[in-house]
């Protein structure tokens, strides 16, 4: 337990941030996010936007898998739903960006609700397979519902335009994605301060006794599916504005594994874990690309091995974290903080 954290009111003890240190960290993070664009590099801005999109999506999956205990192998398909929704509405009707994003979330949430329906009869691993089935079926729809999805060639997405400003480049898009990301992550954090979030965790830990203390599995499992898909949908919508084209290949099945890996590596069932996981997993391929480039003088065809090595590393990260650090990076972070908080004492 941390020392020196006595509170004088329940409100303080139930606060979003429990210690001054946490408030300072949050302040630093916000300042960092505001100042980050000063680096001026287009590459870094692109990466920052991508990371934040993945943070939103991972947080969504974390709500479903990490907090509610329902493994989903179809998360990327919900992102695809969001991306197509944005492409469709913006391309066809030129509707405002924020409305499109809300629609992206809402459509994905609606489909997520439907996919969640089997969760009332089946659990755990069966459910994971059902979500896989749903993503296969969604993939079929994307490929074959040509009038809406553009079939194999997909859809082009217009530039996001807010109040006449075109957000054509990552450094501008940043100012759309960053606030949305912050708001959605804080909202998720809030969720778990209330009865709704507690009900999710109760279902994860022991679904039968959850029912006996008055939690409706029906309502809360579906709610968790819908919320998770909403996050994925919004993330997918932002993704569409970043990459400006959506095809059936945009969100392959492997992308679902990417988000699952992010949740596990970061720390399932903690909000900060979802953030860590998304940042870490997004940066790994970039790091590999840099290393491959650096290796070219010695291994001229190092870049061919990029994709396989990335797959191996993703897989090993999932396995390694599950075996050696099931609570993920969040737990390592907690231990590190604790070490310094009590320094020079050891525990």
């Amino acid at each position: 337990m941390r020392v020196g954290t006595a509170k004088e009111s329940y409100a303080a003890d139930e606060g979003l941030f429990k210690t001054d240190t946490q408030k300072v960290w949050f302040g630093l993070l916000m300042a960092g996010l505001l100042l980050f664009p000063l680096n001026g590099s287009n590459y870094w801005m692109f990466l920052a936007v991508l990371v934040m999109i993945n943070v939103i999506s991972t947080t969504g999956l974390n709500i479903l898998t990490g907090y509610t205990g329902q493994v989903s192998l179809g998360h990327a398909a919900f992102m695809a739903v969001g991306a197509y929704t944005v492409a469709f509405f913006d391309g066809r009707f030129d509707t405002p960006v924020l409305l499109n994003l809300v629609l992206a979330g809402a459509v994905a949430a609606g489909i997520g609700y439907l996919v969640g329906l089997p969760s009332l009869r089946i659990k755990g691993l069966y459910l994971a397979i059902a979500t896989l089935a749903a993503s296969v079926i969604l993939g079929f729809v994307f490929l074959n519902w040509t009038p809406v999805t553009g079939g194999l060639r997909g859809l082009n997405v217009p530039t996001a335009t807010i109040a006449g400003i075109e957000l054509a480049t990552p450094d501008r898009l940043y100012w759309l994605v960053m606030p949305i990301c912050v708001v959605m992550v804080l909202a998720a954090k809030n969720l778990f301060r209330t009865r709704v979030g507690r009900a999710f965790i109760a279902i994860r830990d022991r679904d039968i006794s959850a029912e006996i203390i008055g939690i409706s599995l029906f309502k809360y499992k579906l709610m968790s599916f819908a919320i998770s898909s909403f996050y994925a949908g919004v993330a997918g919508g932002l993704w569409a504005y970043l990459f400006r084209v959506v095809t059936p290949e945009s969100f392959p099945a492997l992308a679902s594994i990417f988000f699952l890996a992010a949740v596990i590596v970061g720390g399932a069932g903690t909000i900060v874990g979802g953030i860590f996981g998304a940042v870490f997993m997004t940066l790994i391929p970039e790091f590999l690309k840099l290393s491959a480039t650096a290796l070219v003088p010695w291994f001229p065809d190092a870049s061919i091995y990029l994709a396989p090595v990335r797959n191996i590393i993703f897989g090993l990260l999932i396995i390694g974290f599950l075996i050696f650090e099931p609570m993920g990076l969040a737990e390592m972070w907690r231990r590190t903080r604790r070490y310094f908080a009590l320094w020079p004492f050891r525990t």
């Binding site: 909202a187 998720a188 809030n190 969720l191 301060r193 209330t194 009865r195 709704v196 979030g197 507690r198 009900a199 965790i201 109760a202 994860r204 830990d205 022991r206 039968i208 006794s209 959850a210 006996i212 203390i213 008055g214 939690i215 709610m223 919320i227 069932g269």
Partner: peptide, 29 residues
């Protein structure tokens, strides 16, 4: 049949679940 991943306080709070009424949108905010 406690919820093992949660603290004592959260477990006890869960007992009141059925009597509370906040919905998901209140919760987000």
């Amino acid at each position: 049949a406690l919820f093992r991943g949660m603290t004592v306080l959260d477990n006890i709070k869960l007992g009141r679940h059925a009597h509370l009424t906040a919905g998901v949108f209140d919760a987000f905010l």
